[in-house]
Design a protein around this nucleic acid. Structure first.
Lengths: 217, 217
DNA sequence: CTGCATCCGCCTCGATACTG
DNA sequence: CAGTATCGAGGCGGATGCAG
């Protein structure tokens, strides 16, 4: 009954009252890659209770962070303008979180761990890794297929936006998997090595790819 | 024994595993205004259990976000470089949280609520409200005293940093209280009205104050 | 079949008491 | 002052049930 609140006259406390609860920011992560149905959100949140997701969605809608599009069977949740404002903050938090993924990857290689992984999370990781300052005048569309999941990056006006599904006219298409992408991003594998091992395939304008590749870190 | 983790190969999940737990980001908020002793942190976190603060500090230290300076009686916690990286993110989150403080203020005016308030939180709120783009060439120090608590803002190089204690050579000194400051920031009270009601006092270079006042929103 | 509501065991949290 | 120990209450996680 009683929502647990910090009860502090502080904007940070207000923010944490809403998105600081367990799972909530990861729900927002799901919505940042496009509108999602209830069940689709569940898939991205292994371990969450169905009642908890329901509760969280209620408070997100109630506070104008998310909204329901359809009414009946085809209903889906999407972010409001206020919710969308969390995108850049989330990008920075993802960049900050990278301080720790090497440690976690180490834990993983210790063999005691099987972290779940989803291509949609890489969409946001790529948005976060995009360095806007390097992209002056660059305008291109790159389509990615990770472990069978396809999306594309739209790069223009010094911004990068990842969108689910295939692109209409991609300049270049890349096929690989999450692990390889992360290894390349973490400089543990070179692009060339990945291609040799047939872990990564590039189709389309290769020069565009090389240019775009430089825009991420 | 078992830390509750999302167990996801996602940098956002890594971040939330660390600072997404209850109270943790507010602990960081405390450290963002300077090193703090254990008891000082407790004061800023009404309702937290002492064991919980202890646990949180352990994980923050363990993951290189905070560190202990002294050993015995005079020990204090401060942020590491990794922890300090949360400053700008926290600023943005504070700005985002302002979407909701009007609603909460409304709840407050409904009379059913007494939100706790601390001047140190206003320090960060001011840092967050600072608009770097407006501050080209501005270099000044403004000392604030809110309800008896004194700190000062150092503005230079398009940045604003709030520091506890009195300033050495402040250009202007302001004396007021949190509520008045927030009302002025929220445009509910004008500067002139506040001065007339003797809720706010300005000493020193008034033109500097007027200039600096424009840098915040 | 999707979108939840209900129920229950468990673990975290919050408060108090206690120790170096 | 800086934590540790303990314990009741409640949010969380998982399974199940039900309605549109």
């Amino acid at each position: 009954m009683s929502k647990r609140s910090y009860n502090q006259a502080c904007s940070l406390a207000f923010a944490m009252d809403l998105i600081g609860e367990r799972w909530t920011w990861l729900i927002v992560r799901g919505l940042l890659t496009g509108p999602k149905r209830y069940g689709e959100l569940l898939e991205q949140l292994p371990g969450i209770g169905t009642n908890l997701l329901s509760d969280r969605m209620k408070t997100l809608v109630e506070h104008g962070i998310a909204e329901k599009s359809g009414k009946g069977r085809q209903s889906a949740y999407s972010l409001t303008a206020t919710g969308e404002e969390l995108r850049s903050i989330t990008h920075q938090l993802i960049r900050w979180g990278r301080h720790f993924d090497t440690a976690e990857a180490g834990r993983e290689s210790n063999g005691n761990e099987s972290l779940m992984s989803m291509p949609e999370w890489d969409m946001l990781a790529l948005e976060a890794a995009f360095v806007a300052e390097k992209a002056d005048g660059v305008q291109a569309v790159m389509q990615l297929t990770l472990s069978g999941f396809t999306f594309h990056l739209v790069i223009r006006n010094n911004s990068c936006r990842a969108i689910c599904g295939t692109a209409v006219e991609p300049d270049v298409c890349v096929t690989t998997d999450s692990a390889t992408l992360i290894d390349i991003g973490g400089k543990r594998t070179s692009l060339e090595t990945a291609e040799e091992k047939v872990k990564l395939k590039i189709e389309g304008d290769r020069s565009v790819f090389n240019q775009l590749f430089q825009l991420f870190d």
